[in-house]
């Protein structure tokens, strides 16, 4: 589903970020830029954690500017704390269907299927602490599968994983997005991530989120702000 930021201004303390851009339906977009440039602020605005100072956000033709975070068609993977440590993997996935965890038999089956799909068959009864970092990410992705939201927002959820594991996860994100037909917005500071998953990249710099540009072109011939950040 297409996402439109119309004349958006986000205000976090003294910090201001403006965004006026459109992301095509089904696109996979990386969000890059220097630390503190406002990448997470942009996502917080999209997810509904930070109210907009000005402007509106439209997803699939629907104005969601004032919708509560849970009511938006957005599934989010955060940097950390994506799983509740006191709930089992299956329960954490089940939250994607029913927040009160009162699952019907059919829904419980769907949870198992989702766990199978991400390669965690038989591990549903484990608590997050009994799973590896990669397996924890898979649990969160299984939940995204069940949430079936139109937009998948990722705030560097795999930053703590090693390069091979991270590549594996990005591929899984691609597959999950394809199955749910979701539009993907992914914050990253690693150009390799952007090249691997995203055809387009939004550059956030100097208080502004720029319209998406083809990732390859942007990284091969970066504008000044990005060049400084990349150190290329």
């Amino acid at each position: 589903m297409a996402i439109r930021f119309e004349n958006v201004r986000l205000q976090a303390g003294a910090f201001t970020l403006t965004a006026d851009l459109e992301i095509a339906s089904g696109a996979r977009v990386a969000v890059m830029g220097p630390s503190g440039a406002g990448k997470s602020t942009l996502l917080a605005g999209l997810c509904g954690f930070l109210p907009l100072a000005v402007g509106r956000i439209v997803i699939a033709g629907q104005d969601i500017t004032n919708a509560a975070p849970g009511a938006r068609p957005v599934a989010t993977l955060f940097q950390d704390g994506n799983l509740f440590p006191h709930l089992t993997a299956a329960q954490n996935v089940g939250l994607g269907l029913r927040p009160d965890l009162r699952l019907s038999g059919e829904e419980a089956c769907a949870v198992q299927t989702a766990l199978d799909r991400v390669g965690l068959a038989g591990l549903g009864d484990r608590k997050p602490a009994q799973l590896s970092g990669g397996q924890q990410s898979r649990v969160a992705l299984a939940r995204v599968l069940l949430q079936r939201r139109a937009v998948l927002a990722l705030d560097e959820p795999f930053a703590a994983l090693g390069p091979a594991l991270k590549a594996e996860m990005l591929d899984l994100v691609g597959e999950v997005a394809q199955e749910t037909k979701a539009t993907v917005l992914m914050i990253t500071h690693d150009p390799a991530d952007a090249r691997r998953l995203a055809d387009e990249t939004v550059l956030v710099a100097e208080g502004r989120a720029n319209p998406p540009a083809p990732t390859g072109t942007l990284l091969d011939d970066p504008p000044a702000a990005l060049q400084e950040y990349l150190g290329a």
């Binding site: 954690f49 975070p69 849970g70 989010t76 006191h86 709930l87 927040p99």
Partner: peptide
């Protein structure tokens, strides 16, 4: 701080949040 946003994005709010998250944590 740690789980507030996750809970909000999953519509885990009000009484359900109390039961599923807060009381258990």
């Amino acid at each position: 701080q740690v789980y507030g946003r996750l809970a909000l994005s999953l519509e885990l709010t009000g009484r359900t949040f109390w039961r599923v998250v807060l009381l258990r944590r």
